[in-house]
Amino acid sequence: MELFYFVLPAPNVEKSKAFFTKVFGWKGYGGGQGGHVDCTNTPCGLGGDVNEVYFTTLDLPKTLEKVLAHGGTIVKETENFVGKAAHCQDNQGVHLWFQEPSADPHIREHALNPKRGSANGDLFFFSMPAPEEAKALDFYGGVMGWTFDEKKAKGGMGVQNTVGPSGGLSVGNAKSQYPSLWFRVDSAEETLRLVKEAGGKGEIFEAPEGIMSQCEDDQGVEFGIVQPAPGY
């Protein structure tokens, strides 16, 4: 099951647009709330209060049956021009959405042929909190059909069988009920300079995946940046 869309919180959408335009060069804002970004390989938006991730399903009722069978809950269901969607929580209370795309050709093309971002400002990685490893493997394996690599330092487990944006589990992370989002950049040092110039903050560190920083924007919204190491 692939990532369809994601949303970064934006207490003030206009401030968020100015910040991410400066930091990532995002442009083309639109949509009903004015925060849709259409210049990234994985379409995304700015708005709301928390990180949101939407995963593609071609049969929403069947997916929701699996959510319940694996200990998750359904918070609400919605429908608009994009299609039918459902806000759920997994079997440990982590929030996620499922999106069944409408018949619109552009929307279905994106849903059926997701792209893995390779440009500055594209999504690099999404991480789902997983307080208990066994429960997370049962839910995400059973509902999403995901398979995982071996657990790495800090409890990271990457999804092996996606063709769109990369993702994984943050095993042992009980601090959040929402996914974290990390963005690919050409230069972590230069991007962090722009973050700070725009009123945000962060500090550089190195990991096997590359040179990274967990940042905050000028409204306190958390996000990560990664200058990928060779092979990533």
Rank of each mutant, 00 (worst) to 15 (best):
D138Y: 10
D138A: 15
D138C: 11
D138V: 14
F139M: 05
F139R: 00
F139N: 00
F139Y: 11
G141H: 12
G141W: 14
G142M: 05
G142F: 08
G142C: 05
V143M: 03
G145Y: 07
W146Q: 00
W146K: 00
T147M: 08
T147V: 09
F148N: 03
F148L: 09
D149T: 08
D149E: 12
E150Q: 14
E150D: 15
K151F: 10
K151L: 12
K151R: 14
K151H: 05
K152R: 15
K152S: 11
K152N: 08
K152V: 13
K152I: 12
K152E: 15
K152M: 14
A153K: 07
A153N: 06
A153E: 08
K154Q: 09
K154C: 09
K154W: 07
G155F: 07
G155Y: 04
G156N: 01
G156Q: 00
M157R: 04
M157H: 03
M157V: 07
M157Q: 01
G158R: 06
V159C: 05
V159M: 09
V159N: 02
V159Y: 01
Q160R: 14
Q160V: 13
N161G: 05
N161S: 06
N161L: 08
T162E: 07
T162V: 14
T162D: 05
V163W: 06
V163S: 14
V163I: 15
V163M: 10
G164C: 10
P165L: 07
P165A: 15
P165D: 11
P165N: 13
S166E: 13
S166D: 13
S166R: 09
G167H: 05
G167T: 04
G168L: 04
L169E: 01
S170T: 06
S170Q: 03
G172C: 06
N173C: 09
N173L: 10
A174L: 10
A174W: 00
K175E: 11
K175T: 12
K175M: 15
S176V: 13
S176G: 10
Q177E: 14
Q177H: 10
Q177S: 14
Q177F: 09
Y178V: 13
Y178H: 13
Y178R: 13
Y178F: 14
Y178E: 13
P179Q: 08
P179T: 06
P179H: 07
S180D: 11
S180N: 11
S180R: 08
